[in-house]
Amino acid sequence: MIDTSFHTFTEHLRQRLQKPLPGESAHKKMASASRLRLNVKPNERTRRSAVLICFYPYQNSIFLPLILRPQYDGVHAGQMAFPGGRMERFDENLTRTALREAQEEVGIRVTDVKILGLLTELFIPPSNFYVQPVVGMLPYRPDFYPDPREVEAVVEVDLETLLDETIVGDSQIDVRGVLVDAPFYQIQGQRVWGATAMMISELLMVLAS
């Protein structure tokens, strides 16, 4: 049973993130069939990126924001994700990348974010990115100011929803005209799948340990 008082929760998570992570075993639970079958590896053109998984207290619960990407001519169009993006030359590290991108995409005041730790880096073959999930917390519910070029909507997800095993499904998902067999989390009418679902899987496994 996870203690949902915010301080206790974040302190437990911070301590747990200092220990060995489940990594690939957690990722495989929510990986698409094509990813498991093809087993594509990073190469010399792979770029680094980072996302921010940021918890905050609200209405006697614990929340984190996901974003819905707008429709555009790209591999991640219309998908659910964590705020984040590619590492720039001026970013001193990937934690800075995650914070900067979260500020740019949804307006989070990054000077107020406390970093709790890191999850396992994850390779995303369609975009050839190696993404570092950075876990943090805010002591308050932020005001969101989504950048309309990169964010169609901010979806606030409470911890109880993520812990509900009935939100897990498996289906064929249409990706730019190609049907992909993939497990997903059904959250507020949206299917969260792919790399984001794999990160959530590891996060949940960490919280349960």
Rank of each mutant, 00 (worst) to 15 (best):
F82D: 01
Y58E: 15
V110P: 02
S5M: 12
V113T: 06
H12Y: 14
A26L: 05
I53Y: 01
E24M: 11
M137Y: 00
D112G: 01
G136M: 00
G177E: 09
A102R: 02
M198D: 04
L118A: 03
Q79Y: 04
L138T: 04
D3Y: 05
G23W: 04
L163Y: 05
E88K: 15
K41D: 07
E105Y: 02
F63D: 00
L162K: 02
T8P: 06
D73W: 02
S32E: 10
H76Q: 00
T10M: 12
V51E: 03
P83R: 08
S32Y: 06
K114N: 12
S49E: 04
M198K: 13
E156W: 06
K114V: 11
F90H: 13
F184V: 07
P57V: 08
F144Y: 15
L116T: 01
E11R: 14
Y58F: 15
F6C: 10
D112F: 01
D174H: 10
Q103N: 14
Y56D: 04
A26Y: 01
R100L: 11
T4E: 12
S209T: 12
N39F: 00
V135C: 04
V151E: 08
L64Y: 02
G107I: 06
K29T: 13
L179V: 04
G194V: 02
V192H: 03
F55W: 09
T4G: 00
Y140D: 08
L52E: 02
V154K: 10
Y56Q: 05
D73F: 09
N43E: 08
E121I: 02
Q172V: 07
P70L: 12
L66R: 01
L204H: 05
P70K: 08
L122T: 06
I53D: 02
G74W: 10
A77M: 09
N43P: 07
N60S: 15
L138M: 14
A33R: 10
V155N: 04
Y145N: 15
R47L: 12
I173K: 00
P83E: 09
V134K: 03
R14M: 07
T95M: 13
V51F: 04
G23K: 11
L52K: 02
M205V: 13
I67T: 12
D73M: 10
V106M: 09
T161N: 07
N39V: 07
L99A: 01
K19H: 10
